[in-house]
Nucleic acid binder design. Sequence first.
DNA 1: GTCTATATCGAGATAGAC
DNA 2: GTCTATCTCGATATAGAC
Lengths: 194, 194
Amino acid sequence: MGNKGEALKQRIVTAADNLFYLHGYDNTSFSDIADAVGISRGNFYYHFKCKDEILNAVIDTRVASYRAMLRDWDKSITDPRLRLYFYIDMQLRNQDNILSHGCPIGSLCTELAKVSDSSLHDANKMLAVFRDWLITQLKLLGVKKNAKQISMHLLARGQGIATVTNAFADKKFLQLEVKGLKQWLDDEILKSIH
Amino acid sequence: MGNKGEALKQRIVTAADNLFYLHGYDNTSFSDIADAVGISRGNFYYHFKCKDEILNAVIDTRVASYRAMLRDWDKSITDPRLRLYFYIDMQLRNQDNILSHGCPIGSLCTELAKVSDSSLHDANKMLAVFRDWLITQLKLLGVKKNAKQISMHLLARGQGIATVTNAFADKKFLQLEVKGLKQWLDDEILKSIH
DNA sequence: GTCTATATCGAGATAGAC
DNA sequence: GTCTATCTCGATATAGAC
């Protein structure tokens, strides 16, 4: 419960978060995390009782951090439509990372779906944060019936862009698709609010 | 070079292919493959000198098998437009597997992008097979300028659908998106051939 | 709380009998 | 060609000193 211990725990989670993104969950060892943080391997087990617990901490931390980010957007951007653009442009801002490592959320979901008990974690919580926020923004714009469907579609488009951009290492493709996605959204909003 | 040896080699690759899809490359051990085939672990090294070589064999086998499948489609379906529908509907036909394990191509690309040297393999060869075939079909329909762009878009849409369907275990979403994708394709072809 | 040392396990890979 | 036995390594996890 001491301050120093809590701070270290957070540093472990932050380092694990980053390494899980760069190399995947399974390919990240305690040694890797320990080296990144600058502590010894044995120290982990004071803060976490197994590797799965670090995974869950990473997921929870990400969920909290995404929520905080979206709250910031809500504060700094008043027009919901501009918020949606800003969401879509996130891939443009992160294009270099996506090119090399894909989407941090999607790639983790994809990996964890293959491993062990899916009951021990729920990586899709991270996607759900964005889905729910998107629904809210669309409803603010007057979209009533299709808000959820459009939101899911936006998630999927983002995932597809990330996967293909990463697989082909094609940054131009990402840029083109992001542009097209914003146009699609405009059309869709127009149609949905008649 | 004997017939029996070659047959076994192919059986190893087939079993590895399936297990890589179900559990991922890294999470599949030689023991897993050996058990599935019904041979001993040591026997692998007569046919492959390391695990990476099995991976490459799996990728090459898939590329060949996808090419053969598309040749069959070309034979049995004469209208390129119907071929494209049949391509998109592939996700519908495979929806149960996608729900549980994602796209066999996309999930492998995503995993391998995180691991080791990307120079040792090129998983995107599998995607390229479909991309090139899609381009051909579109050109047959009279699409000149945007054939590659539309093809890449179709790949990405498919990847996005698979990732999100898998993450949320939402089969209805897949069905809805497949339907929407066919409609999008119709519009796009109309626009591209004016 | 953080460390060092160690236990245990399963992985990829090798040697050599048959 | 296929097997059994074994090597080596690195992983998660534990015990106990400080």
